[in-house]
Design a protein around this nucleic acid. Sequence first.
DNA 1: TACTTTTACTTTCTAAAAGTAACTTGTTAC
DNA 2: GTAACAAGTTACTTTTAGAAAGTAAAAGTA
Lengths: 124, 124
Amino acid sequence: MNTASKSLKKPSCPKKLIASRDALDAIQGKWRVPIIITLSFGDKRFGEIRKDIEDISPKMLSQELKELERNQLISRKIYDTMPVTVEYSLTTLGRSLEKLLEELTEWGVHFRKTVIGKKGERVG
Amino acid sequence: MNTASKSLKKPSCPKKLIASRDALDAIQGKWRVPIIITLSFGDKRFGEIRKDIEDISPKMLSQELKELERNQLISRKIYDTMPVTVEYSLTTLGRSLEKLLEELTEWGVHFRKTVIGKKGERVG
DNA sequence: TACTTTTACTTTCTAAAAGTAACTTGTTAC
DNA sequence: GTAACAAGTTACTTTTAGAAAGTAAAAGTA
């Protein structure tokens, strides 16, 4: 055993890892963050969210809305109109993500400037 | 057409949606954030990261490290020791995620307190 | 010489998740 | 009775993730 290479332990902070995993479990995937962002601009109906997030399928939207509701990030209200209207809105917990999402989008802009924009691929 | 329901457009801010998608493309999935967090505590070798993130398989770790390197979030250094040593470290771009990850873990703690901790399931 | 250990992966195979296209339900308009 | 609209659901296919085992190179051990 090489003493020099193993004498200093590098801590990994399991608490941080657990917290990040908890957060990721809630907002992970391709669609949840976009859904939360569109809802941050106002309550929306199923069809309106579909129009905002152009490439989401009704199956995925339905599935992700259910999961977000289960985790208490959004709430669902049914109006007895003809045809029926269903409106989704952010809960207090959902709105508590706004600062994080602000950071995320800011970093996304930075990332596009420094990495995505500088290679031939992925400019889309 | 119902004039009342459609007179006020709810903006969706496509710029924000694109930026969030760019960011998510880079850090999305179950493993990338944990990898970046462990590396924020110091440069680490393949085996060390495996020990920190207990349930990651070598295949997924290898795959995600490659993707993180491709997106310039981490860098990889090979040392000509016996047996070979490979060390991974965060780049400047990778370190620029720290504020975002701080927000993420803080929110994760809040989420566990208010949601995960209050139901029988998912206490793990 | 042959076997074992270590580090850093890769390969193969199976299971889970995501995506696609068409279908359902209830009601009103034509 | 046919079409349209809102909000989904169902069946099927493809993609991605995960588990188990294998590989490579070099040094150490018997």
